[in-house]
Design a protein around this nucleic acid. Structure first.
Lengths: 347, 347
DNA sequence: TTGTAAGCGTTATCAC
DNA sequence: GTGATAACGCTTACAA
């Protein structure tokens, strides 16, 4: 093997240039796949690169290019499983590439949130950022990223941005279908455990529930709605509110799986059978859905696929607008839903 | 505000030097808290830094120092909740610091695993890495990190390394206490759903189970053991194996929560009441433990605290050996355990 | 098609 | 104590 400056230090672009008898710049052109390059030169340099095991130093590139080959992920989400699925999707996209993923959870109630995010992006000189709900629903962040000259992709439950900056599911439609499933089973009073204010997903899912019921002329008044904040405990509380009411629903749609799990808990405490006495449907299809008893009927959200696509949009901005932006959900019927007792007769 | 070169570009060390009338190097000394510095000079420069809102460029520092202010996290773990908790602990430690966290999941069955990790560390020039079980149990990785001159901390269930490179729980002792709790309730046949081969945690937990039973002269033979691989499905299968046996146990300890959830599922399918007919204990205290019905008795692992400590060991290597290395687990009794039917009489 | 020179923003060396 | 000067490894002008 050809000699290097000293010891076993990693080879640099200078080593490659010297050994292949060309200039640094030419090596740089090879690395960056410049089109105007003699084929013979390219091959010669590539041979040396392979022989030396040369890998460009990302820190040096970052300095020269004023941008880092790093993707950022910004979130403040109560749903751990979703965050992790998203991370895995991003990693699917950057595997075997020069990119790295840095994660940046934030506190959306912090007064310094904007400055915090600004500093994160400026300091890391990110190639691009992905932002998760509910932060992604705030247009001010998009404006901030534009101002900082940082590419971004938002993840959302509705059409928040143009195709180059968005990966989205259609939650309203998905919930409508799930609730129609309950109606088709024979349910006539279907409760809703809605998500917290300020979450676009909560709003979309509520409207999907309403769409389904209104289309069939079924009740969808406030007495059938209880609010939670996407946590197990608030799901319990909402379940109590609904099941202890004067005229309790025979089925409940909860805006996410952990709240649905809370509802199932309450039903058990009341001595109610699920799905015999009350059917429960969740949303997300996180691990918990298949793990609780009975297994939860829910809506699967292709988070990992969406995340992968989000990362690809950042890595290949030129193709971002063509890359898929809408991702279909999938209804997953399990054992937590059944026809109501005597339901078919009523219908 | 004093003028900067052009437009609204971020101020650099040169701007600070020019405006405060000192050299770059002096500013650098201020930034790096060099002790040999005139107090007046320091204050003057600090004032200019504050006025300009100057922040050192991490990429440039990384290039000059040949090391990046970035911590890496390497894992291949079936337990999503643990990974996420660990991430949060690390972020607790680096919040408001110049450090960033890059995550690097790997496939431990990949033939290129070592090269993959080597490349990750060399390329990112990491300040340090944290490695999670079961990867952390392999001494070859520690040797690799040493060879690469990269500081590391391992997370484990037993004493894998010296205090500067380890954060650990004592799983054997923790499980012993949990199983003793079952014995004290009156259980005499206590089954084990053990974790997969190759996991130190699986081994430690099995020995803890055995310790407790042997100390009381209770059976702990292979007919009471079924193996899973830390997943829900394998937990189900192991539960079937145990509950369908000729002389089924009245209580089961599962090596982690999701396998325990699988056991609970099987019990339900068999028409068995938990804890009336069979008590179940898990390990981890992940979100699932409180969410299933009945809420799961388990052992809480202070992962987030351990992770925070691991990151601090990397950031302050000089104090690493003094920083806490052993982290106590906590037994969390919930509703999935009770005295066996007629158990007290047998005892 | 290729090379030269001048950065990018920081730190290390070694004088003063 | 402080400051020129030369790295660090790469890229972008601008020539040739």
């Amino acid at each position: 093997m050809a000699s290097r400056g000293k010891g076993d230090a990693k080879p640099t672009i200078n080593d490659v240039a010297r050994i292949s008898g060309v200039s640094k710049k030419t090596v740089s052109r090879v690395i960056n796949r410049s089109p105007l390059l003699n084929q013979a030169t390219r091959e010669k340099v590539e041979a040396v690169i392979a022989e030396l095991g040369y890998v460009p130093n990302p820190q040096a590139r970052a300095l020269a290019l004023r941008r880092n080959f790093v993707l950022g992920m910004i979130y403040d989400n109560p749903n751990a499983q979703m965050v992790l699925n998203f991370q895995e999707g991003v990693l699917d996209a950057i595997r075997d590439s020069e990119f790295a993923l840095v994660i940046h959870p934030v506190d959306r109630s912090s007064p310094t949130l904007f400055d915090d995010i600004r500093q994160f992006i400026e300091q890391q000189r990110l190639y691009g950022v992905m932002i998760l709900p509910p932060l992604s629903e705030n247009d001010d962040f998009a404006a901030l990223f534009d101002e900082l000259g940082c590419n971004y992709v938002r993840m959302g439950s509705a059409e928040l941005d143009d195709a180059a900056h968005l990966v989205q599911s259609n939650d309203r439609q998905a919930v409508r279908e799930a609730v129609e499933f309950l109606v088709d089973l024979g349910h006539r009073r279907i409760g809703l455990v809605e998500g917290p204010d300020g979450f676009r997903s909560a709003l979309e899912r509520r409207e999907g529930w309403r769409d389904a019921l209104q289309a069939r002329g079924l009740p969808c008044g406030p007495e059938l709605i209880a609010q939670g904040s996407y946590t197990f405990e608030t799901g319990r509380a909402a379940g109590e509110c609904l099941l202890d009411s004067a005229d309790p629903p025979s089925a409940i749609f909860a805006s996410n799986d952990v709240m649905a799990a809370g509802v199932v808990h309450v039903a058990r405490e009341r001595g109610l059978d699920v799905p015999g006495d009350v059917s429960v449907v969740g949303f997300d299809d996180t691990a918990i859905a298949a793990t609780i008893w009975p297994p939860l009927t829910t809506v699967r959200w292709p988070i990992r696929t969406m995340a992968r696509s989000a990362a690809l949009k950042l890595i290949h901005p030129e193709a971002a607008a063509q890359e898929q932006s809408q991702f279909p959900t999938e209804f997953v019927p399990r054992a937590s839903t059944a026809a109501p007792k005597g339901g078919a007769a009523i219908s």
